[in-house]
Design a protein around this nucleic acid. Structure first.
Lengths: 123, 123
DNA sequence: CGGAATCCTATTCGATACTG
DNA sequence: CAGTATCGAATAGGATTCCG
Protein backbone atom coordinates (compact mmCIF):
# COMPACT_ATOMS: atom_id res chain seq x y z
CA UNK A 1 0.00 0.00 0.00
CA UNK A 2 1.13 3.47 -0.74
CA UNK A 3 1.03 5.11 2.63
CA UNK A 4 1.91 8.68 1.82
CA UNK A 5 3.45 8.65 -1.63
CA UNK A 6 0.48 10.34 -3.26
CA UNK A 7 0.97 13.95 -4.17
CA UNK A 8 4.41 14.75 -2.95
CA UNK A 9 5.57 18.10 -4.28
CA UNK A 10 9.02 17.64 -5.69
CA UNK A 11 11.56 20.21 -6.76
CA UNK A 12 10.36 20.58 -10.38
CA UNK A 13 6.81 21.09 -9.18
CA UNK A 14 7.83 23.76 -6.78
CA UNK A 15 10.09 25.54 -9.18
CA UNK A 16 7.36 25.65 -11.78
CA UNK A 17 4.75 26.95 -9.38
CA UNK A 18 7.18 29.48 -8.01
CA UNK A 19 7.55 30.94 -11.46
CA UNK A 20 3.86 31.25 -12.10
CA UNK A 21 2.42 31.99 -8.69
CA UNK A 22 4.85 34.67 -7.71
CA UNK A 23 3.92 38.06 -6.35
CA UNK A 24 2.69 39.68 -9.56
CA UNK A 25 2.03 36.82 -11.94
CA UNK A 26 -1.49 36.14 -10.79
CA UNK A 27 -2.52 39.73 -11.33
CA UNK A 28 -0.90 39.89 -14.72
CA UNK A 29 -2.32 36.57 -15.86
CA UNK A 30 -5.73 37.46 -14.58
CA UNK A 31 -5.61 40.69 -16.52
CA UNK A 32 -4.36 39.08 -19.72
CA UNK A 33 -7.05 36.42 -19.46
CA UNK A 34 -9.55 39.22 -19.97
CA UNK A 35 -7.90 40.82 -22.96
CA UNK A 36 -4.53 41.46 -24.59
CA UNK A 37 -2.76 44.38 -23.03
CA UNK A 38 0.06 46.73 -23.78
CA UNK A 39 2.80 47.35 -21.31
CA UNK A 40 1.47 50.52 -19.82
CA UNK A 41 -2.04 49.17 -19.77
CA UNK A 42 -0.77 46.46 -17.48
CA UNK A 43 0.95 49.00 -15.30
CA UNK A 44 -2.31 50.84 -14.89
CA UNK A 45 -4.18 47.62 -14.27
CA UNK A 46 -1.73 46.60 -11.57
CA UNK A 47 -0.81 49.97 -10.11
CA UNK A 48 1.46 48.71 -7.34
CA UNK A 49 3.88 46.91 -9.59
CA UNK A 50 6.99 48.77 -10.59
CA UNK A 51 8.16 48.89 -14.16
CA UNK A 52 11.11 46.75 -13.32
CA UNK A 53 9.11 44.02 -11.64
CA UNK A 54 6.51 44.07 -14.37
CA UNK A 55 9.20 43.63 -17.00
CA UNK A 56 10.75 40.65 -15.26
CA UNK A 57 7.36 39.12 -14.53
CA UNK A 58 6.38 39.38 -18.18
CA UNK A 59 9.68 37.88 -19.31
CA UNK A 60 9.32 34.97 -16.97
CA UNK A 61 5.76 34.29 -17.98
CA UNK A 62 6.74 34.50 -21.61
CA UNK A 63 9.60 32.10 -21.05
CA UNK A 64 7.21 29.63 -19.47
CA UNK A 65 4.97 29.82 -22.48
CA UNK A 66 1.87 31.16 -20.78
CA UNK A 67 1.92 34.59 -22.41
CA UNK A 68 3.34 35.89 -25.67
CA UNK A 69 4.84 39.18 -26.67
CA UNK A 70 4.17 40.83 -29.99
CA UNK A 71 6.05 43.91 -31.13
CA UNK A 72 4.21 46.22 -33.48
CA UNK A 73 6.73 48.31 -35.36
CA UNK A 74 4.97 51.62 -35.37
CA UNK A 75 6.36 54.90 -34.18
CA UNK A 76 6.69 54.73 -31.29
CA UNK A 77 6.64 50.98 -30.93
CA UNK A 78 3.71 49.20 -29.40
CA UNK A 79 4.07 45.93 -27.57
CA UNK A 80 1.11 43.70 -27.05
CA UNK A 81 1.02 40.92 -24.51
CA UNK A 82 -1.54 38.18 -24.76
CA UNK A 83 -2.34 34.92 -23.09
CA UNK A 84 -1.37 31.74 -24.95
CA UNK A 85 -3.47 28.56 -25.19
CA UNK A 86 -1.23 27.09 -22.53
CA UNK A 87 -1.79 30.14 -20.41
CA UNK A 88 -5.54 29.84 -20.82
CA UNK A 89 -5.42 26.52 -19.02
CA UNK A 90 -4.41 28.52 -15.96
CA UNK A 91 -7.76 30.24 -15.91
CA UNK A 92 -9.39 27.50 -13.88
CA UNK A 93 -6.67 27.11 -11.24
CA UNK A 94 -6.51 30.87 -10.84
CA UNK A 95 -10.25 31.18 -10.48
CA UNK A 96 -10.33 28.44 -7.88
CA UNK A 97 -7.62 30.25 -5.98
CA UNK A 98 -9.34 33.61 -6.17
CA UNK A 99 -12.64 32.09 -5.16
CA UNK A 100 -10.99 30.53 -2.16
CA UNK A 101 -9.33 33.79 -1.19
CA UNK A 102 -12.55 35.73 -1.54
CA UNK A 103 -14.58 33.24 0.46
CA UNK A 104 -12.11 32.95 3.30
CA UNK A 105 -10.78 36.46 3.51
CA UNK A 106 -12.72 37.37 6.63
CA UNK A 107 -12.07 34.06 8.38
CA UNK A 108 -8.37 34.61 7.84
CA UNK A 109 -8.53 38.18 9.05
CA UNK A 110 -10.16 36.89 12.23
CA UNK A 111 -7.52 34.19 12.64
CA UNK A 112 -4.79 36.78 12.32
CA UNK A 113 -6.31 38.99 14.95
CA UNK A 114 -6.73 36.09 17.34
CA UNK A 115 -3.15 35.03 16.76
CA UNK A 116 -1.80 38.52 17.30
CA UNK A 117 -3.74 38.88 20.52
CA UNK A 118 -2.34 35.58 21.75
CA UNK A 119 1.14 36.73 20.81
CA UNK A 120 0.78 39.98 22.65
CA UNK A 121 -0.52 38.15 25.68
CA UNK A 122 2.70 36.20 25.67
CA UNK A 123 1.19 32.91 24.59
CA UNK B 1 -22.47 33.92 -15.56
CA UNK B 2 -19.80 36.43 -14.86
CA UNK B 3 -19.69 38.08 -18.24
CA UNK B 4 -16.93 40.53 -17.66
CA UNK B 5 -17.10 40.44 -13.91
CA UNK B 6 -13.71 41.88 -13.17
CA UNK B 7 -12.01 39.47 -10.87
CA UNK B 8 -9.53 42.16 -10.15
CA UNK B 9 -6.92 41.05 -7.68
CA UNK B 10 -6.60 43.79 -5.13
CA UNK B 11 -3.99 44.29 -2.45
CA UNK B 12 -5.72 42.20 0.24
CA UNK B 13 -6.14 39.33 -2.19
CA UNK B 14 -2.52 39.38 -3.16
CA UNK B 15 -1.25 39.72 0.35
CA UNK B 16 -3.34 36.76 1.43
CA UNK B 17 -2.23 34.55 -1.42
CA UNK B 18 1.36 35.59 -0.92
CA UNK B 19 1.19 34.27 2.60
CA UNK B 20 -0.25 30.93 1.66
CA UNK B 21 1.29 30.23 -1.71
CA UNK B 22 4.83 31.04 -0.83
CA UNK B 23 7.85 28.90 -1.48
CA UNK B 24 7.30 26.22 1.16
CA UNK B 25 3.69 26.59 2.20
CA UNK B 26 2.29 24.34 -0.48
CA UNK B 27 4.58 21.48 0.49
CA UNK B 28 3.84 21.90 4.17
CA UNK B 29 0.10 22.17 3.68
CA UNK B 30 0.09 19.23 1.33
CA UNK B 31 1.89 17.20 3.95
CA UNK B 32 -0.33 18.27 6.82
CA UNK B 33 -3.40 17.49 4.76
CA UNK B 34 -2.28 13.88 4.89
CA UNK B 35 -1.67 13.68 8.61
CA UNK B 36 -0.58 15.72 11.62
CA UNK B 37 3.18 16.06 11.81
CA UNK B 38 5.80 16.97 14.29
CA UNK B 39 8.44 19.54 13.48
CA UNK B 40 11.17 17.15 12.48
CA UNK B 41 8.77 14.97 10.58
CA UNK B 42 8.04 17.96 8.41
CA UNK B 43 11.72 18.59 7.94
CA UNK B 44 12.14 15.06 6.68
CA UNK B 45 9.09 15.33 4.48
CA UNK B 46 10.38 18.53 2.89
CA UNK B 47 14.10 17.91 2.92
CA UNK B 48 15.15 21.09 1.15
CA UNK B 49 13.65 23.46 3.66
CA UNK B 50 15.90 24.81 6.38
CA UNK B 51 14.87 24.89 10.00
CA UNK B 52 14.62 28.63 9.89
CA UNK B 53 12.38 28.75 6.86
CA UNK B 54 10.22 25.94 8.12
CA UNK B 55 9.75 27.74 11.43
CA UNK B 56 8.68 30.97 9.78
CA UNK B 57 6.46 29.15 7.31
CA UNK B 58 4.69 27.33 10.13
CA UNK B 59 4.24 30.53 12.10
CA UNK B 60 2.76 32.30 9.16
CA UNK B 61 0.39 29.48 8.33
CA UNK B 62 -0.64 29.30 11.96
CA UNK B 63 -1.26 33.03 12.06
CA UNK B 64 -3.49 32.71 9.02
CA UNK B 65 -5.49 30.03 10.74
CA UNK B 66 -4.86 27.21 8.28
CA UNK B 67 -2.76 25.09 10.62
CA UNK B 68 -2.58 24.81 14.39
CA UNK B 69 0.23 24.09 16.77
CA UNK B 70 -0.14 21.91 19.82
CA UNK B 71 2.60 21.61 22.41
CA UNK B 72 2.75 18.34 24.30
CA UNK B 73 4.60 18.94 27.54
CA UNK B 74 6.64 15.78 27.72
CA UNK B 75 10.36 15.54 28.16
CA UNK B 76 11.60 16.56 25.72
CA UNK B 77 8.66 18.51 24.39
CA UNK B 78 6.76 17.35 21.36
CA UNK B 79 5.05 19.78 19.03
CA UNK B 80 2.33 18.62 16.74
CA UNK B 81 1.14 20.59 13.74
CA UNK B 82 -2.17 19.83 12.15
CA UNK B 83 -4.40 21.26 9.51
CA UNK B 84 -7.45 23.23 10.67
CA UNK B 85 -10.93 23.07 9.15
CA UNK B 86 -10.12 26.32 7.39
CA UNK B 87 -6.92 24.81 6.13
CA UNK B 88 -8.76 21.79 4.81
CA UNK B 89 -10.63 24.03 2.43
CA UNK B 90 -7.30 24.60 0.75
CA UNK B 91 -7.14 20.98 -0.29
CA UNK B 92 -9.11 21.56 -3.47
CA UNK B 93 -7.24 24.66 -4.69
CA UNK B 94 -3.96 22.94 -4.00
CA UNK B 95 -4.96 19.82 -5.84
CA UNK B 96 -6.11 21.83 -8.83
CA UNK B 97 -2.79 23.59 -8.84
CA UNK B 98 -0.77 20.41 -8.57
CA UNK B 99 -2.83 18.76 -11.26
CA UNK B 100 -2.20 21.69 -13.54
CA UNK B 101 1.51 21.62 -12.86
CA UNK B 102 1.72 17.91 -13.46
CA UNK B 103 -0.22 18.06 -16.69
CA UNK B 104 1.68 20.97 -18.17
CA UNK B 105 5.16 20.29 -16.90
CA UNK B 106 6.49 19.07 -20.22
CA UNK B 107 4.76 21.76 -22.27
CA UNK B 108 6.40 24.36 -20.09
CA UNK B 109 9.78 22.72 -20.32
CA UNK B 110 9.44 22.87 -24.10
CA UNK B 111 8.41 26.51 -23.98
CA UNK B 112 11.45 27.35 -21.88
CA UNK B 113 13.79 25.65 -24.28
CA UNK B 114 12.25 27.42 -27.25
CA UNK B 115 12.50 30.76 -25.46
CA UNK B 116 16.11 30.21 -24.49
CA UNK B 117 17.01 29.29 -28.06
CA UNK B 118 15.34 32.46 -29.34
CA UNK B 119 17.22 34.48 -26.74
CA UNK B 120 20.51 33.01 -27.72
CA UNK B 121 19.76 33.68 -31.36
CA UNK B 122 19.34 37.34 -30.43
CA UNK B 123 15.57 37.42 -30.90
C1' DC C 1 12.99 17.75 20.32
C1' DG C 2 11.82 22.17 18.67
C1' DG C 3 13.13 25.87 18.17
C1' DA C 4 15.61 31.07 19.06
C1' DA C 5 19.61 34.04 18.24
C1' DT C 6 23.20 35.49 15.58
C1' DC C 7 25.91 36.33 11.59
C1' DC C 8 26.50 36.78 6.99
C1' DT C 9 25.60 36.45 2.09
C1' DA C 10 22.68 36.62 -1.89
C1' DT C 11 18.92 37.95 -4.18
C1' DT C 12 15.24 41.23 -4.69
C1' DC C 13 13.40 45.94 -4.88
C1' DG C 14 12.41 50.68 -5.47
C1' DA C 15 14.04 54.81 -7.28
C1' DT C 16 16.25 57.26 -10.69
C1' DA C 17 18.20 58.24 -15.09
C1' DC C 18 18.59 57.30 -19.86
C1' DT C 19 17.30 55.39 -24.82
C1' DG C 20 15.49 53.81 -29.57
C1' DC D 1 5.99 53.80 -25.58
C1' DA D 2 8.51 50.27 -23.70
C1' DG D 3 11.83 49.33 -22.04
C1' DT D 4 17.51 48.99 -20.21
C1' DA D 5 21.14 50.30 -16.79
C1' DT D 6 22.58 51.16 -12.36
C1' DC D 7 22.89 51.80 -7.44
C1' DG D 8 21.80 51.45 -2.72
C1' DA D 9 18.39 49.66 0.61
C1' DA D 10 15.76 46.11 2.14
C1' DT D 11 14.80 41.42 2.61
C1' DA D 12 15.27 36.51 2.26
C1' DG D 13 18.00 32.66 2.92
C1' DG D 14 21.77 29.54 4.64
C1' DA D 15 25.00 28.07 8.28
C1' DT D 16 26.08 27.78 12.89
C1' DT D 17 25.55 27.87 17.78
C1' DC D 18 22.98 27.50 21.84
C1' DC D 19 18.93 26.57 25.02
C1' DG D 20 14.70 24.71 27.82
Amino acid sequence: MDTDAELRIDAPHRELLDQILDKWSLSVLNELCERPCRFNELRRAVPQVTQKSLTSTLRRLERNGVIEREVVSTRPVAVRYRITPLGKTLRHPIDVLLAWATQNMSAIAAAREAFDVREEAGR
